[in-house]
Design a protein around this nucleic acid. Sequence first.
DNA 1: AGTAATAATTTGAGCCTTCAACTGTGTTCT
DNA 2: AGAACACAGTTGAAGGCTCAAATTATTACT
Lengths: 168, 168
Amino acid sequence: MADTRWLDEGEQQTWRTFLTAVHLLEGALDRQLRRDSGLPHAYYQVLVALSEAPGRELTMTGLARLLRSSPSRLSHAAARLEEGGLIRRFKRPGDRRTTIAGLTPRGMETLRSAEPGHVHEVRRVLFDALTDDQVGQLRGIAESMLGVLDPGEEESRYAGPTGTGSQD
Amino acid sequence: MADTRWLDEGEQQTWRTFLTAVHLLEGALDRQLRRDSGLPHAYYQVLVALSEAPGRELTMTGLARLLRSSPSRLSHAAARLEEGGLIRRFKRPGDRRTTIAGLTPRGMETLRSAEPGHVHEVRRVLFDALTDDQVGQLRGIAESMLGVLDPGEEESRYAGPTGTGSQD
DNA sequence: AGTAATAATTTGAGCCTTCAACTGTGTTCT
DNA sequence: AGAACACAGTTGAAGGCTCAAATTATTACT
C-alpha cells in the first residue's frame, strides 16, 4: 500500500464528531425501541420490511438484501421473531429451498404500536436537530456514501425500510 | 403523547438512506480492523484514546466518558484488551477505588500497525466519497446531532478519539 | 467514631452478531 | 443419468454489548 495520507485536523474532527453522533444516535434509537416495545432496532426493521412487502411476505434472501443483513444474522433474528409469534416462516411451494417469512397479525400490531414512539425519537434525535438545509445535505451525503458502500444497488435505491412513514 | 407527525416522503428516504449508509459504513470499518489487526472497532478506539492521553493512561471513568461507553462495556473491553497484553490496569495510589488503564508497548505497536489500514478505509468509505462541501456539511450536521444527543458536553467538544490522525 | 450516601468499577446473565461449517435443493454440463 | 456446481437457508461456537446487581472504597453527616 502507498504512503498513508493521514487525516488533517479538520477531517479528524469531522470524523470523530460524526462517529460519536452516530454511536449515540443508534444507542438512543435502540434503547427507545427496546424499552417501549421490547424489540431491538434491527428486529423492528425486519417487521417494517415485511409490513411493506406485497402480502406482507418476503423471501429470507430478499429480506436480507433489503436490510443489508447477512443470511445468518437474519436467520437468527427470524428464529427469535418467530418464537415471539411476530412472524412465521414456511417453505415456498414449488421450491423447497426458499423460505418465506410473513408478518403475523400479532407482528403487525406490535409494529403499529411501536411506530409512533419510534418516529418521535427519530425526529427528536435527527430531524428536529437539523435545519431543512442540513436535512437535504444529509441525504446527499448518505447517497454518496452508498455509492461506495453499496455497489450495484443503484436501481434499488430508496434503500431499506425503517418504519417511520405514515400509516396507509 | 401528542399526535404522531409522520415522516414525509423525503424525510423517509433521507432517513433510510442514512441508516443504510451508516450500517454499511460500520460494517466496513469493523471488518477491516478485525481482519487486519484482530481488533473490533470499539476496542481500537480504546487504544487510540489511551495513546493520546498524557502518559498514555486514563481512568476507566475518563475513558468511558471519552468513548461514550457504559462503564460496564468498557470494563469488559478492558478485561479482554488486558488479556491480550495491549493494556494494563492498576489501582491509583491514593484512591483505591479508581482503576487506571495504560497502553502497553505492545498495545502501542498494535495500534501503530493498525492505523494506516484504518485511515485508508475511512478515506475510502467516507472522505473519498464526499466532496469538500459535503465534508463541511457533514461536520455541521454531526455537531447539531451532538447538541441533542450529548447534552452538557459543549466544552469537551472535539469529541472522542478515533485513531486516524498523523503520527507525532 | 459510626452510619449512611456516593463513587468507581466489576461481574454475570441474556441476547445479538459474526464467521465458518453444514444441509438440502435446484441447475448445468457432458 | 450422473457429477459438479451454485443457491437458500440454518446451525453452533465465540465474542461483544446491555442491564441489573454486587463489591469496595471514599466522603458526608450527626
